[in-house]
Amino acid sequence: MEKCKSSFVVAAGKGAILELAAGAAQFAEKVSLVALAAPVSAQGIDAVYTLEDPNASVALYAKAIVKLICEQKPELVLVEQSRNGRLLAGLIAAAFGTSVQTDVSEIEYDGAFVTKRAGYGGLAVKVERSAETAVICVSSGSFPAAGEVPCEAPVVLKAEGEGITFVEKKEKLQQRTNLSAARRVVCVGRGIGDEEKLALAEELAGVIEAEMGCTRPVAEEDHLMPTNRYIGVSGVSVKPELYVAVGVSGQVQHTSGVSATRVIAINKDEHAPIFSECDFGVVGEAKDVLPKLIALLKD
């Protein structure tokens, strides 16, 4: 396969570093890495850069990272798709006078980088072609991971942001979820309303051994579930055998994150869009349907 000359990988997590290193090595002869957190390196990496104080904000190092990458003029910059990754990708792309190709699920190289992403909340697939330099944010799982190797003699980058001062950082205590690998998912939408009905949905999930998921507003507006449990274009993608939606309207931004073998819906509105996206649906109140369903399933 034809390769470009040089590339950069910018990432924090070890998993992302190993994946993006393998991806970059597929497309470029030389791969340099900016490791934003712990010093990690991978097979195929030719040079590693780390941050002087990875416990401070990555934002303090943005200028130094942009300068470094601009000096080396790579044809490809692969960036971890995290919030810090998106920020750095934008700043790097602006310096090269181009846009970022974000949320990319597939990459091909034919002299330019041609990528695929979702558009219109997942209704459409958008194929984009890069200018001279491609800055790409890739979804995790796009490449098989490269092997880890010890990170030897990295070049340490110093903070250069005068205008930004770091005050503090608080770690989040979020439980990890198994949602993206779950075989069965019970998903609650705003129709679940309150803790009491949520408990019923959780009981159903217990009976059928399913993971709990939710729609974005249930996590972000109603704060009934943690944000790492919302499913959709901007959240987790799930691919279970069985997906049961309770009080979910079925907007495309949500349903595009669901590719299930069988979709079952419970919603009180017979016109809810979810009913044209499901295999089997029941028109009814969650608080009536759930207890009866649980009783039938326990029999």
Binding site: S57, A59, R83, G163, T165, V167, K169, K170, E171, Q174
Partner: peptide, 12 residues
């Protein structure tokens, strides 16, 4: 800033 694994406070 609300990041995946932490929140950080900055002066800008």
């Amino acid at each position: 800033r609300n990041l995946e694994d932490c929140t950080e406070t900055l002066k800008v």
